[in-house]
């Protein structure tokens, strides 16, 4: 197991980062710090996914042969948008000569980032409201107030 940990040290680091984020969520009592922990935890999971999709010696999954974004690559390769109509379907195999990284994890993580920020926004809005009604954003204080309320049945 230990030799494997060193061979795949990318994954090892990513796991340590995930653990750290998760620890911040669980251990801190401050509502904002918890959300920071959650954010770190989620970002580390993104790192895991992107690491899965990395291909050694690969390139970003933007097909360079097909179309030149800046004009530098406009070599013998056909300009896809212009030449597409003439090239019969199935005739063009651009991927065989260039190695690309796996695009699927990238897509998944783009979605996950958005989900993460959505959760964060709701969490922070809740925090602000909690601060207004409880006067604190420390979990201990909030639990104490609620506990007293449950015991006495009245506020204050």
């Amino acid at each position: 197991m230990f030799s494997a940990i060193f061979e795949n040290f990318h994954y090892t680091i990513v796991i340590i980062l995930m653990m750290t984020g998760l620890y911040v969520v669980f251990s801190s009592g401050n509502l904002i710090k918890k959300l920071v922990g959650l954010s770190v935890f989620q970002t580390s999971v993104f790192l895991l996914y992107i690491s899965i999709g990395k291909v050694r010696g690969g390139q970003p999954p933007i097909l360079v042969d097909d179309h030149s974004s800046g004009g530098e690559h406009a070599s013998a390769a056909t300009n896809l948008l212009a030449g597409a109509a003439e090239v019969p379907a199935g005739g063009a195999h651009h991927a065989s000569d260039v190695l690309y990284s796996n695009p699927l994890p990238h897509v998944l993580i783009l979605t996950a980032i958005v989900v993460g920020v959505a959760t964060l926004a709701i969490g922070l809005a809740l925090t602000v409201r909690i601060r207004e009604v409880y006067g604190s954003i420390e979990e201990d204080v909030i639990n104490e107030i609620d506990y007293r309320y449950n015991l006495e049945g009245t506020d204050s």
Partner: peptide, 26 residues
Amino acid sequence: RRALAAAYRYLILGSIGATFFVIGLG
């Protein structure tokens, strides 16, 4: 007002659950 604290707790645990699910999926 306890609804706010409950929703927050649900949010944290729910997000951890969802993130665990995503890790498993990965």
